[in-house]
Design a protein around this nucleic acid. Structure first.
Lengths: 222, 222
DNA sequence: ACACTGAATGAATGCTCATTCACTTACGAC
DNA sequence: GTCGTAAGTGAATGAGCATTCATTCAGTGT
């Protein structure tokens, strides 16, 4: 039995776990502060204080402020992608899968409104390489929706549309809950917002002969 | 004849004109630089250089950096409002007025893409009072669209919808050309983007019996 | 116990930048 | 021409901040 290897493995695992925890702790503090005040208005000292740690330590985990900001945004987008994937589940009907994916996006945005805005506000100040990563991630996140729309078109359930454009329209609608919360927030409840936009989007593309299968999704537009 | 008053009036007018010109010159330089690099990355020195004046002069025209930023965003939104109002013209058919207003928004956003993004990115760093002003301006800009949708509903041309939500959906779609230009820019021409979204939005809400009046706007969804 | 390794600290460094102000220049009134 | 007022200048000030690094601390193997 390789006792030595086992010990080193165990300690290494413990080490990695602690490192990961620290990293997450720093990211969480940075995300909270940057979402609230904007990255340029948050000093490294403030992040350190927020995490209950000294400034110097941040530099053991991140290359610098730029790197920290990028890591914050990446972690936000990754959590979005994960949650959206979960939300869709295994709905077989492509049209209902569109609705489920859209609702998933909307709910994630609703829960992480400030974080979503952070990504919009601060992306510009990243280096080109960092921006590319974020764009890739976002396109990834949109993939389930694109797939569902493609399936619906292929199955003849909806009229032919420009798939990437239609799918991104839905994505942007979800984002708009965060971007224009000051407007929508006082005019409509989130659940109604989701229902209304689901109905609008589907009403635009459903074929007349398939509309009556989805009256539950069309609401007053049925 | 009040010669003295006339002279003072004339010189005062000339004075005001020069002051206005300077102000615009400074705003233009600031807008260009801030749109490109983001307000926090643009020093007052850089704005001064960009406008070909000295730093100190900026403080004769604006209270400080914060004030300058706010003035830049306000001027951008005001130019948007003006251009949109022009674009709509006097189309009598409410449905076609919706289409015209939407196209107007889209064109303005297309022409001033960077400026539009500036408003999104930097609003957070304004004081609450400044933000309120910007929100008012944006709602003003949306008014023609809200009015057109209201008319269309009242005239029974489209199904009843949540008017402010539907109108803002269109506004956000126009904005999304700027927000996601990295995505749409390589996938669809601007004119096609406008046509596709006009068709989608109208297809969602037009009554079956009125659809055939607007086949030109519905394109492939007719 | 002891030495060793890496985690953690926080004061010191050096830079950038907004803002000020003592001074200069341009210009209209007389 | 010359006086007064307003426009314009740019070096100096001082605050804030990212980043570094000499030092301390804590845990682990022997």
């Amino acid at each position: 039995m390789p006792t030595i290897d086992a010990t080193t493995d165990a300690t290494e695992a413990a080490h990695d776990a602690r490192t990961e925890a620290r990293r997450r702790q720093l990211l969480a503090a940075a995300a909270r502060l940057m979402a609230e005040h904007g990255s340029p208005n948050v000093s490294m000292q403030a992040v350190a204080d927020g995490a209950g740690v000294s400034v110097g330590l941040i530099y053991r985990y991140f290359g610098g402020k730029q790197d920290l900001l990028q890591a914050v945004i990446v972690s936000v987008l990754e959590s979005f992608a994960t949650r959206v994937a979960e939300a869709i589940g295994d709905e077989p009907d492509p049209v209902r899968r569109i609705a489920a994916a859209f609702a998933g996006y909307c709910d994630v945005i609703h829960d992480e409104r400030e974080a979503a805005l952070l990504a919009y506000r601060e992306t510009k100040s990243l280096d080109p390489e960092g921006r590319r990563v974020l764009m890739d991630l976002e396109v990834q996140t949109a993939q389930p929706l694109v797939a569902a729309v493609t399936d619906a078109v292929d199955a003849g359930l909806i009229r032919p549309v420009n798939v990437p454009v239609f799918a991104y329209q839905l994505l942007m609608t979800a984002h708009s809950w965060a971007l224009k919360h000051w407007y929508f927030g006082t005019r409509i409840a989130h659940a109604d917002f989701v229902a209304e936009h689901t109905a609008l989007a589907l009403s635009a593309v459903l074929r007349p002969e398939t509309r009556n299968h989805y009256t539950d999704l069309l609401g007053t537009l049925a």
